[in-house]
Amino acid sequence: MASEWLSLFDDLYKAFGETALMVGVSTVFAIIGGLPVGFLLYIADRKLFWDNPLVSSVGSLLVNVIRSVPFVILLVLLLPLTQFVLGTTIGPAAASVPLSVAAIAFYARLVQSALFEVDPGIIEAAQAFGASPARILGIVLFREAMPGFLRGLTITLISLIGYSAMAGIVGGGGVGDLAIRFGYYRYQTNVMLVTVFILIVLVQFVQIAGDRLATYSDRKGS
């Protein structure tokens, strides 16, 4: 019994490392890819200084297509891309490729909606004082939308934890994969329960930390 728990601990430790890798990599891509794409969608849509209906509708369509494909299917669809980028389709690094693609599309939409939440009056004021587009984007919009960006990132992270569980399908490993293999295929319900419990704690932690950060950056309520 003791050795069984010990080996479970080993498996869990490894699975956690894989989940952390997948979620970490895709979150980094969500930020460096999703932020610019979200800004682009916003600027192309709003009559500020670079409204462009073509970019707006094509970009929006692309984001929607990626978001409407169920993640399990996106995983499979992107196998050639994964193969091309990494030379393999197995392992947590390989699973990070489709996760990153989904994360960019997901976060870009949240960034765009956070930007739309910024009071247009503040942007008008910035224009009235002759602020340059770079200042309006980089200072006014970025700062004012920061609480929204952080809330969006929290939601993205939590979704990615969920998606990463499905990544086991392509041999990505991770906590979700552990739960399926041991808990479901081998009828080890205790493994399933432990992993689910750990996932709940993880998600709670991310949510609380994200909310704290967002509240801190949002001076409206303080």
């Binding site: 004021a125 004082f129 002759g130 602020a131 340059s132 700062r143 004012e144 949002d218």
Partner: peptide, 24 residues
């Protein structure tokens, strides 16, 4: 463009709903 922004810098504006940056 830049010429318009320079002109606007010489004109102040006050708004009904203040339009201040909340995060500053």
């Amino acid at each position: 463009g830049a010429a318009l922004r320079q002109q606007r810098q010489k004109i102040g504006m006050v708004f009904q709903h203040f339009n201040l940056m909340h995060t500053s």
